[in-house]
Amino acid sequence: MSTLHTVNKSPFERSSLQACLGHAQASDSVLLIEDAVMAALSGTAFAAKLADAGQSIKLFVLGPDLKARGLDPAKVVNGITVIDYDGFVDLAAENSTIHSWL
């Protein structure tokens, strides 16, 4: 049993990323999509928190959402994997439950 958590809001606007990280279990995966992708970039106020969470949780960010917002996939925090929709589907299939933090 493992869970794929998705977060779709910027941590600068909403608490959903924080709530997600506060509940995700070791070996779960967290995928940042839509407006949550800004949290993945190095140099933000959340970078350290993400890097820390990445010690126990697998972190992913959706590349098409980064690109749409002019954010460089090469500049994501170390340990966050950039994936596309195919990768999103794979994660959803590999984990037994999907929890979308809204």
């Binding site: 779709n8 999509i33 839509e34 098409p64 929709y85 195919d86 794979d90 959803a92």
Partner: peptide
């Protein structure tokens, strides 16, 4: 919201796989 677009992209990718 982007929700419906994201859901559509996900569904399409899933079917293609």
């Amino acid at each position: 919201h982007q929700a419906s677009d994201s859901a559509y992209r996900f569904a399409k990718a899933a079917i293609d796989k």
